[in-house]
């Protein structure tokens, strides 16, 4: 697949010296990182695993905004995302990629966080459309968030309003390259800086009734 490099905006970094989140425990979640570590065997194993992960991305069939209308053509004969191993899954338990397609209302944000945390690691978030980057045309709207990476770790942004399905495919190609290189570590970033993300989320979701982490 021809994957053009898309410009990626820097992810908003949490404050320096933030403490890795401990209570989740070593064994269950944080044990393995995607970053290749020192031992050769482990590095090779991580490379193989990343190749598998990159070539079989299952996308959560969930649309938050108008951008999800651009996801549907991907399954049709014209664009056919299945030839890259991309498939739609209806449940977060079996999905690897969460696409935030366009504007995100605060009410949806709560559901999105819930779905994201239920996905098995490693998992990736794709911000589709300008709305996820800087608010897009919903910049001054009273009920939509302006910047997605304050609340969820975004691995790839696809700019545009709306990006065409070709742009989406190119974005997926970029994400696959990133996963193969072991650089798509948004999920790890999320767990390491869970307090920072939770603080941001609770600031905007005033009716917070979620558990600390949605297993």
């Amino acid at each position: 697949m021809e994957s053009k490099k898309l410009p990626v905006l820097p992810v908003s970094a949490p404050p320096e010296g933030s403490v890795p989140h401990a209570p989740l425990g070593e064994g269950c979640f944080l044990g393995e990182t995607q970053r290749p570590k020192a031992p050769k065997l482990r590095e090779a194993l991580a490379t193989i695993k990343n190749w598998f992960r990159a070539n079989s991305l299952w996308v959560m069939a969930y649309g938050t905004g108008c951008g999800s209308i651009e996801l549907r053509p991907l399954t049709t004969a014209r664009f056919d995302m299945e030839r890259f191993g991309l498939a739609m899954r209806p449940t977060p338990r079996q999905s690897n990629v969460l696409i935030i397609s366009g504007y995100l209302a605060v009410k949806s944000l709560k559901r999105v966080i819930r779905a994201y945390e239920q996905m098995p690691s490693p998992k990736w978030v794709v911000g589709l459309g300008s709305c996820t980057i800087n608010g897009g045309m919903y910049w001054d709207s009273y009920n939509t968030i302006n910047q997605l990476d304050l609340y969820l770790p975004v691995d790839t942004y696809i700019a545009g309003c709306m990006p065409r399905p070709e742009a989406l495919l190119a974005g997926f190609g970029y994400l696959m390259e990133k996963i193969k290189k072991g650089e798509a570590n948004g999920w790890h970033h999320y767990l390491e800086n869970l307090d920072w993300y939770k603080e941001n989320q609770k600031k905007v979701i005033t009716a917070w009734d979620l558990p600390d982490y949605n297993w």
Partner: peptide
């Protein structure tokens, strides 16, 4: 590939 991918995911449930 799907089988290999599912084997290299981590469950949390």
């Amino acid at each position: 590939i799907d089988l290999g991918k599912n084997l290299s995911l981590r469950t949390a449930t």
